[in-house]
Amino acid sequence: MSTPYLEVRGLRAAYGDIQVLHGIDFTVAEGQIAVILGANGAGKTTTLRALCAMVATEGSIKLAGEEIGRRPTADIVRRGVAHVPQGRGTFPELSVEENLQAGGFVRTDGEVRADIDRWYGLFPVLGERRRQAAGSLSGGEQQMLAIARALMLRPTLLLLDEPSLGLAPMITRELFDHLTVINAESGTTMLVVEQNASLALSMADQAYVLEAGEVALSGAAEELVADDNVRRAYLGY
Rank of each mutant, 00 (worst) to 15 (best):
R131M: 12
G140C: 00
V125I: 14
F123H: 05
G140F: 00
L122Y: 12
G121N: 11
D115S: 07
L137K: 01
R130H: 14
G104A: 13
I116R: 02
G121M: 13
Q142R: 03
F123N: 03
R118L: 12
S136T: 05
A133D: 06
A134D: 09
L100K: 03
I116G: 01
Q132Y: 09
Q132V: 07
I116S: 03
F123Y: 14
R118V: 04
D109H: 14
R131W: 09
S136E: 08
Q142C: 00
R129N: 05
Q132C: 05
F123S: 05
G104F: 09
G121W: 13
G140P: 06
S138E: 00
S138C: 01
Q142N: 01
W119E: 04
V125S: 10
G135H: 03
R107A: 07
G121L: 11
E141K: 00
Q142H: 00
E98Y: 09
S138T: 02
A102C: 13
R118H: 15
Y120I: 06
F105Q: 08
V96N: 02
F105D: 03
S138P: 00
D109C: 12
D117H: 14
N99I: 10
E98S: 06
I116N: 01
A133K: 11
Q101A: 14
A133F: 04
F105Y: 15
Q132A: 04
E98T: 07
L137P: 00
E98V: 10
D117M: 13
D115G: 00
G139A: 02
